[in-house]
Amino acid sequence: MGIEELSVNLSSDDPAIGLRASLALHRLAERVEASHVASAREKGWSWQQIGDALGVTRQSVHTKYNKE
């Protein structure tokens, strides 16, 4: 899908769908992040490296994900 197509689709005129889609993207991004943080840890990445990749501090990724 090209970026033009995405912006055409984004102009869908039903706000109920559009607003929900925006939240659904946030949720999806959060799940994508969590699953890749887990796989980075499995591959031996340090919290520092993951933080660098996400543009946040080591502490903040550690606090968020080091639960298990």
Binding site: M1, L6, S12, I17, G18, A21, L25, L28
Partner: peptide, 9 residues
């Protein structure tokens, strides 16, 4: 959610 994401293509 799938439906809404589908609306975005």
């Amino acid at each position: 959610d799938h439906e809404a994401l589908g609306a975005l293509g």
